[in-house]
Amino acid sequence: MFEAAKPLLKQLLTCIAAIVAAHALAFFLMRALPSAATVALGLQSTNVEVVAAFESSAPVRSYRQTVVDFAHLQLGRTLDGTSVSSELLAALKLSLPVLALSMLLALLTAAIFALSPRARAVVPSMQFFVFLPPFLFAFLAGSSQLFGNVIAPIWLTIAASAALACCLFAVQAHAAMAQELALPHAEVMRMFCATERDLRLKLLPGVLVKLAPSLETGVSLTLASLLFAEPILGQAGIGTLAARAVRRSDVDLLLGAVLLFATCIAIARLVGWGLRRHYRLPT
């Protein structure tokens, strides 16, 4: 049983190592930024006593202390005095459905592009959208707010976050379906008078499975898009939270956000790996 679980354990260890590395890297990157006291107090930070009073109310933990506290599941407090865990949970409650809906949308788009022969005409457009910078979708979504809230901001956030992942999955699904249709078993099915529609439907699960390696990419693209979309659209969530943490040099909050991002990506990676393993694709 241990032998069977060994690959999974190996993957888990890799994920944990990556999460720890991301946490450490974020901690040390924050050292390069202006201190929280400088950002919060502005010119008042020239006053040593004022800075001391600020830092006594919001002490900066060493990296070792951060890791020790994390081992006790204590993520610290934000500069506002709220618990980091509660802020992350609140942000996650808002962003997780966006993330899930975005991935769902991406899979649906992939399915549509795999099933529809006419999608071939639209594939170049999808390739063009992938070519565009990720923040453009957030810009366009945000610009629509200038003309009134015709579309609720939350849908704009979902659209802006999902756009890139949808385009990528669409292009890959189309290419994967084209490959599948050229294989001998598709030829055999045609010989058995399968219609184009039936053929594509039967091949769809295989095509979607081939997207498994892209699952992690899709999730990280969506998270990256959230980091632009939520602040631009003024929506609360993990993107806005992370942006706020960075700009205010709120170390504890940012480390919590990085842990959250790393965990989401690790989960996506594990799911992708599991799917590849299950369907005996190369891992």
Binding site: T14, C15, A17, A18, I19, A21, A22, L25, A26, L29, M30, A32, L33, P34, E216, S220, L223, A224, L227, A242, A243, V246, R247, L254, A257, V258, F261, A262, I265, A266, R269
Partner: peptide, 21 residues
């Protein structure tokens, strides 16, 4: 394997601000 996860977990704004700082 690890760099993919690590770099994708760090918000781009932090990377940029830290580098510019």
């Amino acid at each position: 394997k690890i760099s993919a996860q690590v770099i994708e977990s760090i918000p781009a704004v932090l990377l940029v601000l830290a580098a510019v700082a």
